[in-house]
Design a protein around this nucleic acid. Structure first.
Lengths: 227, 227
DNA sequence: GACGACAATCGTGTATACACGATGAGGACC
DNA sequence: GGTCCTCATCGTGTATACACGATTGTCGTC
């Protein structure tokens, strides 16, 4: 199983990608310890490279270093999550507005295809595939805005949001699948204003599905720290 | 001269701060090589720590690693700069709007004081002090928005902007000193809409002072690459 | 005298070594 | 029998060692 490729210069990127993907796919739960030596053995590199990858992910906000010396998958507080979503609202609204101004027909069609696949996945109960498509939708939109700086921030925040959702999701809340459709419609109509408003509302809707109020954290061992 | 403190755990932060400050103060020009061993000797740490600091600054966009193996102070292209300012416009407008909603009288007064000092510095011809105060103004505003995520992005972009200004500044263009005053006025009046618009205009004004069009880069050795 | 090739040197990329701090187990004392 | 202290072990933080690639200086040749 060990994806032990030749360990090129891109080994760090490989580790980052693997961890990001695992977090998105819910295989890595928030709070999971990430040991340098073990990761290094698995990926066939030394601690040095693993360390660089972990520091990068820390900077991206999905891994927490300085938690008493051990790297763990970040476990953002409710306040952190609110800030993440507030920032995401601002930035993704801006990215979609910018994207409307320069998107071409082909990209719109591609976007539609992603949303169609997403809806199909949810319809057949494949939550994992649905989530993946949903993320792909946001990532594509970020790339389409034509501004790498904004796109990077948008991607970071979408990733952090996924972490937040994994932590705080209320069970039994249905996916609001119409949002992405409406968004693409507004984009296709070149209605930047409306697309921006829809995106802001969409982000709000995502946040509203979380249980940020009463429950401080559906967490790990902290629950048992009742001494 | 060597600021060789006891090299605590914050050694990396110290190096980052020193490099950031030097870039802001124009002591480190874009394109300057940053050698690991030399920096390490100066700060009294090993290459390991210097490396971490350089990687962090690379992530922040003010140091460029992968430029044929040597770390240099970033030298953003005109397109990069446009993207930076576009992102900054979006994010700083959002931060100032958020700040208006929660700022107290004391913070407003502190802000006014910074602007007053800034204007005084420019008035007496102390450009360095003026620039420093100007940056302090933007940094404070970022902190006052109450959202650490947005604040971090804002600080990053302000820093990158300073780099861009150092690279592309048109000589003989006066500082538009009224901008900050008007901004504080709008904030004091709790007019979030107006404050946001003023900030966007202010960022545009800053960008308009750059020579991004004809001159691709008032650069270093690239000038002589006329073969 | 100029150009090209080779060799030495310098600086980075990666791995490893060493030491400190934290964590958990085992034992002794209460 | 429970609790607290001590010691061993594990994992990280930092420094150093090693090797590759690049750059520069020098020498030989045209």
């Amino acid at each position: 199983m060990a994806a032990r490729r030749q360990a090129a210069g891109g080994a760090e990127a490989r580790i980052c990608d693997a961890i990001r993907a695992s977090i998105l796919a819910r295989r890595l739960a928030p709070g999971t310890k990430l040991q340098e030596l073990a990761l290094g053995r698995f990926f066939g590199v030394s601690r040095t490279i693993v360390r660089q990858a972990l520091r990068r992910l820390d900077h991206e906000g999905i891994v927490s270093l300085r938690e008493k010396r051990v790297a763990v998958v970040a476990r953002p507080s409710a306040a952190d999550v609110r800030h993440t979503f507030a920032a995401r609202r601002v930035i993704e609204a801006a990215t979609v507005e910018a994207a409307v101004a320069r998107i071409d027909k082909a990209s719109i069609a591609a976007l539609r295809r992603v949303v169609r696949d997403e809806n199909a996945a949810y319809a057949r109960g494949d939550r994992g595939a649905g989530l993946e498509r949903s993320l792909a939708f946001h990532h594509r939109l970020a790339d389409l805005c034509g501004n790498p700086v904004l796109a990077r921030y948008a991607r970071e925040l979408v990733l952090q949001s996924s972490l937040a959702i994994a932590l705080y999701e209320r069970s039994g809340v249905a996916h609001a699948r119409a949002d992405h459709d409406a968004l693409v419609d507004a984009i296709a109509r070149r209605d930047a204003r409306r697309a921006g408003r829809l995106m802001a509302a969409h982000v709000d809707e995502l946040e509203s599905r979380l249980a940020l109020d009463g429950a401080p954290a559906p967490s790990l061992d902290e629950i048992f720290a009742d001494r």
